[in-house]
């Protein structure tokens, strides 16, 4: 591998990396909050809301992300909705990841001891106040590990959008490899993906420590 060749590759790979990071950040930004109503919906006692939420989660977790991507980019224009490549990619990822996050939130909410709900109720909290002030803050610590797990998967899933021609990291690498008949670009892309997932792992550990303050025993 020679350094000058790597230097000529870096600008396109860097542009691809930025596109990957953009996709990653926008997906999390919208799917993390969007998961919550579906989580609360799927434990709701109002059955139409419950069925709607569960069906949503079932569809988006039960079909391949690639298929959803094709459907939204190639299929929706048939219904008069035409999205450009990047928007289609972001919309698909947000809808898909919201379903996974909904399940993580739901499990987190249901893992909180019944005594917490009862204590809040006897102090006069409404079910919604109980959720907001007592239950959800306690679930944050428990859902950080599964959420970072999903976030790491997301970094790698962004490579799927190559299939609809979004110029992210993998596409930049692939184009270089095809052009130069040299696999160096794949190697560099792997290093960049690893660096991104490494950063995420560190971040999630920091967050976990931060949110388990209250579990520390007396020192």
């Amino acid at each position: 591998m020679d350094i000058t060749y790597i230097q000529t590759l870096m600008p396109t790979l860097w542009a691809g990396t930025l596109q990957t990071i953009k996709l990653f950040v926008l997906t999390l930004l919208f799917s993390l909050p969007l998961g919550l109503p579906f989580a609360i919906g799927s434990i709701s006692r109002v059955w139409p809301i419950k069925i709607l939420s569960k069906t949503y989660v079932w569809i988006f977790r039960g079909t391949p992300l690639m298929l959803q991507l094709f459907f939204i980019y190639f299929g929706l224009p048939a219904f008069g909705i035409k999205l450009d490549r990047e928007t289609a990619a972001i919309v698909t990822f947000v809808l898909n990841y919201a379903a996974y996050f909904a399940e993580i939130y739901r499990a987190g909410i249901q893992s909180i001891d019944k005594g917490q709900h009862e204590a809040a109720k006897t102090l006069g909290f409404t079910p919604w106040q109980t959720m907001r002030i007592i239950i959800i803050p306690q679930t944050i610590k428990r859902i950080i590990p599964p959420i970072s797990n999903e976030a790491i998967t997301l970094v790698k899933d962004t490579a799927l959008v190559t299939a609809i021609g979004v110029a992210e990291l993998l596409k930049a690498a692939k184009d270089a490899v095809n052009r130069d008949v040299n696999i160096t670009a794949y190697f560099l892309a792997a290093v960049i993906y690893l660096a991104l997932t490494f950063l995420l792992t560190m971040l999630s550990q920091k967050l976990e420590q931060r949110y388990s303050r209250h579990e520390k025993q007396e020192v």
């Binding site: 917490q116 009862e118 204590a119 809040a120 306690q138 579990e215």
Partner: peptide, 11 residues
Amino acid sequence: MVFQHFNLFPH
């Protein structure tokens, strides 16, 4: 109410 298992809010 005061509960057998306290049910304090841990956070």
